[in-house]
Design a protein around this nucleic acid. Structure first.
Lengths: 248, 248
DNA sequence: AAAAAATAATGACTCAAATCATCTTTTTTA
DNA sequence: TAAAAAAGATGATTTGAGTCATTATTTTTT
């Protein structure tokens, strides 16, 4: 079964990467994944690599929790990461799904002592860690690199602002359409995909309850806007989904 | 009447500042207000001052609109600024109230070509503008200054995230308590204050409708949690307001 | 392979807050 | 200063979505 094979492949690959990282810091594979690496001096690269380490996580494992000290800044090297906040016991909101290339904890690494959200693995995830002080010193010393970080933060900021607007004013069909489009366009770049989350998690992404989310998806299914069985979702009428998303 | 006197005072002061800025760029009063100025070289200071200019706005005037090109970055020097987004015709959300010291447009200045929100004056406002390119070049060249900007963006990000969480899960009494506390603690640092917004605007800040907001304030008033006549609001039971805010 | 636990799905019921309607008061403008 | 417009307030009605309850299905554990 191809799925199983894929897992093996990833695992072997990760082990190899981790070995390389341990044995030969200079040629660490980690540096290949580092965003904006062309802006960093050889000296800075070495500092990063020497303070870096890789860590593997599998589905549902927590990468770091809201409230814990930030000792290292985390780069998503492969896999999908769920970024969530606990509002009260049992009441969560998923802020976003982070993809490879994302820097985690950026918004709090320079100011707070602690992470202000929880990150957990959606599928198999490989994280590259860099010491917090090493990273922030480079941002301080290297304006060009810092500038790229600033840009990234601006994008994060714009993203969360647009989510605030849509979650606050759109009603359920619009919000559910939003997350369908999010998966289809941002994450899988395909109108057919396997939902990588439980219904509960989907609800936390759409800012609603499990029951309401299931109901809305069922209605979309009945109305032949999407086709849904188990976790395989196909957008049948992209047009309607986009209209629902736009009009809320 | 003391209110009238105050207006005159501010106006005179502003005119003086603007004159100074025009006639003597080197000693521009603007530079005094610039955050993190101790991190900037004399040369960079001069570049900022030479590209800078001041602009005055009175109540309800638009400082810049969502969607217009960012040519200058705006520093709030005095007064309160309403930061809002239009979601559809007639449907707005107020993201926050910016106070003196705030840098406007930070999240889009490095990436987008345009502002992603509208800023308008709540009371008399003085804005110091710095050319966008001058500003972003300094961020690029001066890591220490850039680092402070990064910190600021992190705080903005944390703020908008916490607003997202509370608006999404708290119900009306909690959200209205939030904005009462916001004015009392963040803006006026007093349990008695004059609301500087219309009921419609308050509603846009609390993420609700005008009618619902008025109703909730009236209930708080009846229940002697606050005392409200016209725009003068006094918190009577801070305890209850805080509990409502916390429990949503 | 059976038992337990987690996840998914649907229907019935409830309720918070939006909408609609009307009226009063205040502010703006002509 | 009269007329028009905007802002504020309150009641009646509607409705979207949350809560509660139950059952089916899938996954995990023993």
């Amino acid at each position: 079964m191809s799925h199983y094979f894929f897992i093996i492949f990833i695992t072997e690959n990760v082990d190899k990467l981790m070995d390389q990282n341990k044995n030969n810091k200079k040629d660490s594979p980690f540096i290949q994944f580092l965003p904006f690496q062309h802006l960093i001096t050889e000296d800075q690269k070495e500092k990063i690599v020497l303070s870096s380490f890789l860590e593997e996580y599998s589905r549902k494992e927590i990468i770091f929790s809201q409230g814990v000290n930030i000792d290292n800044i985390a780069f998503v090297l492969s896999g999908l990461v769920k970024i969530s906040r606990e509002l009260r016991k049992g009441k969560n909101i998923i802020l976003r799904i982070a993809q490879p290339g994302t820097i985690l904890g950026l918004s709090s690494v320079f100011t707070d002592e602690v992470f202000n959200y929880t990150a957990s693995a959606i599928d198999n995830v490989l994280i590259g860690y860099v010491n917090r002080k090493v990273f922030s010193d480079i941002v301080k010393d290297n304006g060009a690199f810092g500038f790229e970080i600033t840009k990234q933060m601006g994008l994060d900021n714009a993203y969360i602002t647009s989510r605030l607007s849509s979650l606050l004013y759109k009603q359920l069909p619009g919000r559910v359409s939003d997350i369908i489009l999010y998966f289809a366009q941002e994450i899988y770049k395909s109108n057919t995909f396997n939902i990588p989350l439980t219904r509960q998690e989907l609800a936390e992404l759409a800012g609603t309850t499990k029951e309401s989310l299931i109901r809305t998806l069922s209605e979309f299914n009945h109305d032949k806007i999407i086709s849904l069985n188990r976790n395989t979702l196909s957008i049948i009428s992209l047009n309607i989904i986009q209209t629902l998303s736009r009009l809320g």
